[in-house]
Design a protein around this nucleic acid. Structure first.
Ligand SMILES: [Mn+2]
Ligand SMILES: [Mn+2]
Ligand SMILES: [Zn+2]
Ligand SMILES: [Zn+2]
Lengths: 130, 130
DNA sequence: TTTATATTAGTAATTGTTCCGAATATTGTT
DNA sequence: AACAATATTCGGAACAATTACTAATATAAA
C-alpha cells in the first residue's frame, strides 16, 4: 500500500511528537477539531494505525481487547503469545529493587510494577513450522 | 459491605484456581452456563469484581480503559499514576538480558518486553496532601 | 418464621473502536 | 492544465466488552 500525504495525519504525528503525555484518540480529536472542523474519529484511528505500521507511533495497550483474570495472586511476571494470545506465568524472580530505582529517579511513590514478555509460544511455533 | 455466599461466585473462583490459563469473563461464562443454565454475564463480572476486592483474584488489564499513543519510539519503560492515569516515560535502562532469561526458562521466542510501574505521581501526591 | 439485604437474571445503556460507502484530495501521466 | 487512478476523508452504522438498572430470589440472622 502506498501512502499519500494527508494534513490530518501530519498534524496527528506532530501533536504526538510535541506532547510529553501519552494521549488517547479522543484527546487528539479534541485538540484538532478546531483546525479541522469536519474531523471524525475514524480519521484519528485510521491514521494512528497507519503511523503505527510506519513505525512512527506506538500504541500502548494490553494486547488483548478484553480483560483477563487469574487466581494466582503471588507476584509473578507474564509471557504473552502474540499469535494465540495465551498468557503464561513465569518463574523469573520478581525484582523489587526496580521499584526503588524508579522512586529514586522520579521521586514518586511506586506501589507495584509489572513485566510482560511478548513472543511466540511453543504451540504456535510448532504450528508455524508445519 | 458484607458478603453472602453464592454458588456462582464459589465456582468462578474454583475454576480460576484450577486453570493455568488466564481466562476472559466470556470463557468463564461458557464453562459455567451448563451448570447454571440461567447464568448471565453480569453475574460473572460482578463476582470477578468482588473476588478482586477480596484479594482472591487479579485482573490483568492495562489500567486505562482506552488505548494511548506516543511518538517516542525509543525503547523505554513507563510509570502510570493510579490516581490521574498520567503516563510518564522513565530513564531506567532497558534490560534486554531479561528476555534472554525468559527464553532460557521457557524455550519460547521473546520479541520484546514491557515494564510498567504503578504508583502516585507528584501532582496527585501534592493534591492529596492539601 | 420473619426480616433485612446481598445476589441473581435479564436487559438496557455506555464506551471505545472498527467498518462502510459516497465524496474529496493527492499523485502521476498525458 | 486536464485526466485517471486511488488513497483519504467524513459521517454514521455496526460492533464488542463492560457497566448499570430493576424486579425476583437466595442467604443469613433474629
Ligand atoms: Mn499469571
Ligand atoms: Mn512513553
Ligand atoms: Zn501461541
Ligand atoms: Zn497523578
Amino acid at each position: 500500500m502506498l501512502y499519500k500525504k494527508s494534513k490530518q495525519r501530519d498534524r496527528i504525528l506532530e501533536l504526538l511528537k510535541t506532547t510529553g503525555s501519552h494521549p488517547s484518540a479522543d484527546w487528539l480529536y479534541e485538540k484538532l477539531k478546531a483546525e479541522f472542523p469536519r474531523l471524525s474519529m475514524g480519521t484519528i484511528y485510521r491514521n494512528l494505525s497507519i503511523l503505527e505500521k510506519q513505525g512512527l507511533v506506538k500504541k500502548i495497550d494490553f494486547g488483548s481487547t478484553y480483560d483477563r483474570f487469574e487466581a494466582n495472586i503471588t507476584p509473578h511476571y507474564h509471557f504473552i503469545c502474540e499469535v494465540c494470545g495465551a498468557i503464561k506465568d513465569l518463574e523469573l524472580p520478581v525484582e523489587y529493587q526496580l521499584e526503588k530505582k524508579v522512586e529514586e529517579e522520579t521521586h514518586m511513590t511506586v506501589h507495584k510494577h509489572r513485566i510482560e514478555f511478548f513472543g511466540i509460544c511453543n504451540a504456535c511455533m510448532a504450528k508455524k513450522g508445519s
